[in-house]
Amino acid sequence: MNELIKTILNHRSIRHFEDKPLTEEQVKTIVQSAQSASTSSFVQAYSIIGIKNKEKKKKLAELAGNQEYVEKNGHFFVFCADLYRHSLIGEQEQKDIIPSIESTEKFMVCLIDASLAAQNAAIAAESMGLGICYIGGIRNNLEGVKELLKTPERVIPLFGLAVGWPQKITGQKPRLPLQHIYHEEEYQQNPNVYLSQLREYDELISSYYEQRTGGKRKDRWTEQIANMLERKNRMYMKEFVQNNKLDLR
């Protein structure tokens, strides 16, 4: 097993970082790694906003639900879906591209491009001995985030990536069994097999939480996910995306 694969398989979210900023060279390397990711039809429909300013990080942390690690890290990256530059391209080349960039397909391209770039960035950071934590909480209040980051129409902040020197290394959460995720030739959908696998996984996760918390927590994965999905969360998203002239049809 080579070192890159070891880095990938050793991933865990880090939520406590040393008070030590990343160097300019580290930031540049992480961004260049992100840019090296595959991009649909070479569209490159994303942008990355780096946050170093402590006050701005503090405000972002508040908008993200008071998550401390949004404020206290070595560098904070915000990955955005971005078709703003493409609207300018249409004007420059005198082409009617608006129906295309306001389509659901191009919105999906934005999301996929940004996600691929972010994962490249995450792996690059971890390969340098840094820790990372993805932050979906910035979508709790996207109006506030857009105002803070001054993003134009057709640009939507999707998620953050906190990067820094780990203060402590946490345990690694067991993932779903491979056979539950990986299907060959066609989707295997026998509900009895699925439920059996989920029961086994529930036991594994419950044991993990119990050991990690000294018996204070031992909830099952299916219990945790069902409770989370039962809560209506960020239900304003469709309207917000449409108001920013993305995904209109």
Rank of each mutant, 00 (worst) to 15 (best):
A162W: 01
V241F: 07
Y84I: 07
G164F: 05
I205K: 00
I169Q: 12
K232Y: 06
Q242T: 11
L246P: 03
P152C: 08
R231S: 13
Y194S: 12
Q119K: 10
A122W: 00
S38L: 09
E91R: 07
P177V: 05
I89R: 15
Q188T: 13
A121V: 02
L148I: 13
L195C: 11
N2H: 11
M237I: 14
S40V: 13
M235Q: 14
E18T: 08
Q211P: 02
K106H: 12
G65F: 00
S87K: 13
L195W: 10
S196K: 15
I169R: 14
N10Q: 10
G160E: 00
M128K: 10
E71T: 06
I98M: 14
L60I: 15
S206A: 13
A121S: 02
P166Q: 02
Y134L: 04
K52I: 10
L63V: 12
F42Y: 15
Y209G: 05
E185V: 12
H11C: 02
D82N: 15
A81T: 01
G65E: 06
N233H: 15
W221E: 03
E93A: 09
I135T: 04
R234V: 07
K168W: 14
M237D: 11
M228E: 12
S103H: 00
E203Y: 09
Y201L: 02
N243M: 10
I89H: 09
G171S: 13
D19V: 06
I138E: 01
A34E: 07
V78S: 03
E102A: 00
A45L: 02
Q242V: 07
T7L: 00
V70R: 02
L178A: 07
F79S: 00
N244P: 04
A34S: 12
N73H: 03
Q188M: 11
